[in-house]
């Protein structure tokens, strides 16, 4: 087979997808909202499903969450992993209940649980994929999360592309220089072991290289008043003062609450359990 440059399902593609996801470069409705409104939206969507077992309500909530995902323009990698996850889950459930003599009732029951988990997953996809690290860390600060956590979020996002790139380079180095197994073994187990070994070995240089990078970063943070700001509150209030809840932000929350109430009303009218 001849090698070709591929644009999809390659390491390069994964890297780009991660960046696009992390920085919300696709735009979308939620990325223009005040981050606090987005987080509150998420909280509503994540908590409400736990308060009901009415399939009608859950179905309506599922549709709301799906609309959220659509409006947020979630990218193919994240969506793909989500769908694969759900797919595996369903497959797995069928298998388990068949093996242990379950019946359709079991499936339906577990299906409802998956419906709930699906709503929450979609809500978190829509919300967190739309928040770039800056907005997310500001919103976390606004909700009184510790400074260290808020910083961890924005720094983690910033480092991610660099670290994935670095890991890729080091891993490639092993692929180039370490001899692959001569035989693939049963189900290619030798190859699997070889890859796992390379992934583990890659961490030695990654630890040392990252430690060196982190040193510079933390020194730079120190000189630019990061620790100072955690003691002195003025920086925090400036950051929080920059956020504005606009009409559309309030509208988003009001519409969501209305839809959720509507969902419960529909559930009252046409209740359906299991």
């Amino acid at each position: 087979m001849l090698r070709k440059q591929r644009d999809v399902l390659s390491v390069e593609w994964i890297k780009l997808e991660l960046i696009r996801t992390a920085y919300a470069t696709r735009g979308g409705m939620f990325s223009r909202r005040d981050p606090r409104a987005v987080l509150v939206w998420y909280l509503i969507m994540a908590f409400v499903p736990w308060f009901t077992h009415n399939v009608t309500v859950l179905a309506v909530l599922f549709v709301i969450a799906a609309i959220g995902v659509f409006l947020a323009r979630v990218g193919p990698l994240v969506l793909g992993l989500f769908i694969i996850g759900i797919g595996f889950e369903i497959f797995y459930l069928i298998l388990v209940s068949l093996m242990f003599g379950g019946n359709l009732g079991t499936l339906a029951a577990l299906g409802v649980v998956n419906l709930k988990l699906g709503i929450i997953s979609m809500a978190s996809m829509a919300a967190f994929v739309s928040l770039d690290p800056e907005k997310l860390s500001d919103a976390l600060l606004a909700f009184k999360m510790p400074e260290l956590f808020a910083f961890g979020v924005s720094y983690g996002y910033r480092m991610l592309p660099i670290m994935v790139e670095e890991f890729n380079t080091v891993f490639d180095g092993f692929r180039l220089r370490m001899a692959p197994p001569e035989k693939r073994g049963f189900l290619g187990w030798r190859t699997v072991v070889h890859w796992a070994k390379m992934a583990i070995l890659s961490f030695y240089p990654i630890f040392l290289n990252t430690a060196k990078n982190v040193r510079t970063t933390v020194e730079a943070l120190e000189t630019r008043g990061f620790t100072y700001a955690t003691v002195d509150g003025r920086g925090r209030s400036i950051r929080l003062g920059q956020m504005r809840m606009g009409t559309v932000d309030w509208l988003l929350l009001v519409v969501t609450v209305a839809l959720v109430v509507g969902a419960f009303a529909a559930g009252q009218a046409w209740p359906l359990y299991r």
């Binding site: 920085y23 690290p133 990078n213 943070l221 008043g225 700001a229 920086g235």
Partner: peptide, 28 residues
């Protein structure tokens, strides 16, 4: 002020504007 040899690691915020305002905001 100190600019490092590996200045890429000195950048801690996502956008350029935010990177520049990081210091002044921290110091309030």
């Amino acid at each position: 002020g100190y600019v490092y040899q590996d200045f890429q690691n000195q950048l801690v915020r996502p956008t350029v504007r935010d990177e520049i305002s990081f210091g002044p905001i921290n110091f309030g």
